[in-house]
Computed example of a mutant assay.
Amino acid sequence: DEMEDDFMEFYEKEFDDVKQTLQEEVDRAEFIKTIKDKGLKVVLATNPIFPKAAVQTRLNWIGLSVDDFDYVTTFENSHYCKPNLEYYKEIFENIGSKPEESIMVGNNALEDMIVGELGVRTFLITDNLENPEKIDVNKFENGNFDDIANKVLNIL
């Protein structure tokens, strides 16, 4: 508690300097907008290890805002982290949706794809794949972002 102000000041003022480490610019705003235009909820289910201010900064780096999403996980509103299934259950409770009505698009073979155990349809993005556990990615529907975006947009 006594250091919270220092951490928040870092995230609000200095954290933006981390942007220099990005390897490429990405633009996902049109993808998010298209899904929302279809009347669907869009959740940014990022591992909630950052405060909202840091998540907003990271989104700014790719031209998005927390306001572009119906729900964004942060350490202020989450009680669990990936790959704990309770993390995902908490999201569904907060957005009032059912797992079987949802789709998870993510790039981590364990932390994102685990939600399939709740009945969520999953798509593993192989661009910037995170798979330290060496899970067989062929057991998931997978492809690069453009492949997945086309599949997601065509099934909605």
Results as ranks from 00 to 15, higher is better:
residue 1 D to Q: 13
residue 3 M to S: 07
residue 3 M to H: 14
residue 4 E to Y: 11
residue 4 E to H: 10
residue 4 E to W: 06
residue 5 D to G: 13
residue 5 D to A: 15
residue 6 D to W: 00
residue 7 F to A: 12
residue 11 Y to T: 02
residue 13 K to L: 13
residue 13 K to P: 03
residue 14 E to L: 12
residue 16 D to G: 07
residue 18 V to W: 14
residue 19 K to I: 10
residue 23 Q to V: 09
residue 24 E to D: 09
residue 24 E to H: 09
residue 27 D to G: 12
residue 28 R to P: 00
residue 29 A to T: 09
residue 30 E to M: 09
residue 30 E to D: 14
residue 31 F to W: 13
residue 35 I to Y: 11
residue 36 K to G: 06
residue 39 G to W: 06
residue 42 V to K: 09
residue 42 V to W: 07
residue 43 V to N: 01
residue 44 L to Q: 01
residue 44 L to I: 12
residue 45 A to Q: 09
residue 48 P to W: 00
residue 49 I to L: 06
residue 50 F to K: 03
residue 50 F to Q: 04
residue 52 K to I: 05
residue 56 Q to M: 04
residue 58 R to W: 04
residue 59 L to Q: 01
residue 59 L to S: 02
residue 59 L to G: 00
residue 61 W to H: 02
residue 63 G to S: 13
residue 65 S to C: 13
residue 66 V to S: 15
residue 71 Y to L: 06
residue 73 T to W: 03
residue 74 T to H: 10
residue 74 T to M: 09
residue 79 H to M: 13
residue 79 H to S: 14
residue 82 K to A: 02
residue 83 P to G: 03
residue 85 L to F: 03
residue 85 L to A: 10
residue 87 Y to K: 01
residue 88 Y to M: 01
residue 90 E to N: 00
residue 97 S to I: 11
residue 98 K to P: 12
residue 98 K to D: 15
residue 99 P to I: 01
residue 99 P to K: 04
residue 99 P to T: 02
residue 102 S to M: 14
residue 104 M to R: 06
residue 105 V to D: 07
residue 110 L to V: 09
residue 111 E to K: 14
residue 112 D to R: 06
residue 112 D to P: 05
residue 113 M to Y: 08
residue 113 M to H: 08
residue 115 V to F: 04
residue 118 L to T: 04
residue 121 R to P: 04
residue 121 R to N: 09
residue 122 T to Y: 13
residue 122 T to I: 13
residue 122 T to Q: 14
residue 122 T to E: 15
residue 124 L to C: 15
residue 126 T to H: 03
residue 129 L to G: 01
residue 132 P to A: 11
residue 136 D to R: 05
residue 136 D to C: 12
residue 136 D to F: 03
residue 138 N to V: 08
residue 139 K to N: 03
residue 139 K to G: 05
residue 139 K to Q: 15
residue 140 F to T: 02
residue 142 N to D: 07
residue 143 G to R: 09
residue 143 G to V: 06
residue 145 F to G: 03
residue 146 D to Y: 10
residue 148 I to M: 02
residue 149 A to K: 14
residue 153 L to H: 10
residue 154 N to M: 09
residue 154 N to P: 02
residue 155 I to R: 04
residue 155 I to N: 07
